[in-house]
Design a protein around this nucleic acid. Structure first.
Lengths: 105, 105
DNA sequence: ATACTATATGAGTATATACTCATATAGTCA
DNA sequence: TGACTATATGAGTATATACTCATATAGTAT
């Protein structure tokens, strides 16, 4: 089975497109963390968090490694923060550009 | 109802996170187009395309205006192309970084 | 071995998404 | 007016996603 470049991009964006996963990624900005730190910090139920992390690992947005019982995670590609920041700007622009666009045409 | 900044970002990313919507956006790079041009060009069924466009308009990723019977669309915020390009790089890095990461630690 | 801790996963449920076909609406043109 | 064209939307279906509770697995510490 072949995956188009559109699907590849969509898969990365889908993995990023959830409020809790965005919170997780911003939390990991502060350095590598294990599930047992993330769950209480972000108030996420254990199994739910585990599945969110699986999605992020599958898309190689974070990398994980075992340390005894714990599984640690860290950001694999810092560019995701550029994506998130741009998404914030686009979202923020939403309300404002409307007037501008109407004026332009 | 309050929408968190995480939700706002997730909404923008969700709107971008579909192969057909990515194709539509790249097609609109070539200038404003109406549904009746997009549908045959990308081989998308009419009502399906209509709903994809609705999603893009709702997130103000594209702007639309009527011209007689037609509804035209154009990109509202060029930064989405930066997001798409970054998503492509992150997706592309996936396969390659694995070795690097293992070497680093 | 036993108790404890951290994580993964099966199973169930609720909701969202993508898609299609049929139909409604609105504008165009003879 | 009637026929035609472009778009929107209701309804149905299939699939994906997020979440929870319960349970399994694996490593730690006594």
């Amino acid at each position: 089975m072949q995956t188009s470049r559109y699907e590849l991009k969509a898969n990365v964006l889908t993995a990023l497109a959830h409020p809790n996963r965005i919170r997780i990624l911003e939390y990991l900005k502060g350095g590598a963390k294990c599930n047992c730190e993330i769950a209480p910090a972000l108030e996420l139920e254990q199994s739910n968090l585990s599945r969110h992390m699986k999605i992020l690992v599958q898309e190689k947005i974070v990398v994980s490694w075992k340390d005894g019982l714990r599984v640690n995670y860290r950001i694999a590609d810092q560019r995701i923060f550029d994506i998130l920041s741009l998404a914030g700007k686009v979202a923020h622009a939403e309300a404002k550009t409307r007037v501008k666009i109407l004026e332009e045409r």
